[in-house]
């Protein structure tokens, strides 16, 4: 009896919590923002999320800081180091977010490296995400095959969308495989780079964006890495469903502080 109730509950909650799927169905280009939890100050997390939603951001990636972020450039590295110095931990982040669904309704995705999740306990972590109302996870160093073998069932049980990355070097065959394994959107890394390391898109990106668009993947694509202003946002979303801004937003926060978030979002959406 308990088991049946449990299953029903989990199916229901999956349906209720699929904010990512609902958002992707909206007829607009999605603006998604990444920030590092606990930065600039330890308790800025909730305020930043609320301000981003209030200013029209469509989706948020909340970064779980890690000591050794090997796919990130200097900006996100520095924000992670500072967040950890400020005292951010996985448990504390969950604590900060526990009432977030009382004030925020856009999709929330946790993004981070796999080791802190492993140490928290993958199932425990996913369960906590569901309780809070987290919609998906992006864990760049959790590879596709390990996910499918060991964790897919757990992620699904707690209604979490797992987002995979593709890059200009990813082969068509592997993109198809990733598309098949995805149920939400594909995180399209704009160029061969760590985060925050380029400005502007050139011909090679145009070709790559075109190639992916022609593949007619079942999952929409959201472009990340190298989007820093209105111009690059427009370029990235010409064919893709949306774009994610990370380093540029963190730089803005460092220079201008949390109260000015409105200016940043206006600058992108102009």
């Amino acid at each position: 009896m308990t088991a049946i109730l449990g299953t029903t509950y989990s199916i229901l909650s999956t349906i209720i919590m699929n904010r990512i799927h609902q958002k992707l169905r909206e007829d607009k280009k999605l603006l998604s923002i990444y920030f590092t939890a606990g930065y600039p100050s330890l308790n800025d997390t909730v305020k930043i999320i609320q301000d981003l939603e209030n200013n029209g951001v469509d989706m948020i990636e909340i970064g779980l800081p890690f000591s050794d972020p090997l796919a990130d450039g200097p900006t996100i590295q520095a924000s992670s180091t500072q967040a950890l110095k400020n005292g951010m931990t996985t448990s504390l982040l969950f604590q900060q977010l526990k009432d977030i669904r009382k004030s925020v309704s856009i999709p929330l995705i946790l993004m981070g490296y796999f080791n802190p999740v492993l140490q928290y306990g993958v199932e425990e972590f996913c369960k906590k995400c569901q309780e809070i109302g987290i919609d998906g996870l992006i864990l760049p160093d959790l590879p596709l095959d390990v996910y499918q073998e060991d964790y897919e069932a757990i992620f699904k049980k707690y209604g979490l969308v797992n987002v995979f990355l593709i890059t200009p070097q990813t082969s068509d065959a592997r993109i198809r495989e990733i598309d098949e394994a995805s149920d939400g959107f594909i995180y399209m890394v704009s160029s061969a780079s760590v985060t925050g390391s380029q400005d502007g898109f050139g011909n090679s990106q145009e070709t790559y964006f075109g190639r992916i668009a022609e593949m007619n993947l079942k999952n929409p694509q959201v472009v990340g890495f190298g989007i820093s202003n209105s111009e690059t946002f427009q370029q990235a979303t010409k064919q893709a469903k949306g774009a994610i801004i990370g380093s540029a937003f963190i730089k803005f926060l460092t220079q201008n502080g949390v109260p000015k978030i409105v200016d940043f979002v206006k600058g992108i959406r102009k």
Binding site: F66, S67, D68, L70, L84, T89, T90, S91, Y113, F114, N115, P116, V117, L118, Q119, Y120, D141
Partner: peptide, 22 residues
């Protein structure tokens, strides 16, 4: 060390309870 992930492999690793590498 405790089981964890560093530089692309799963191995014994010195880390905090929160999974930050020490």
């Amino acid at each position: 060390g405790k089981m964890g992930i560093i530089h692309g492999c799963k191995t014994l690793l010195m880390q905090t309870p929160d999974g930050q590498i020490t």
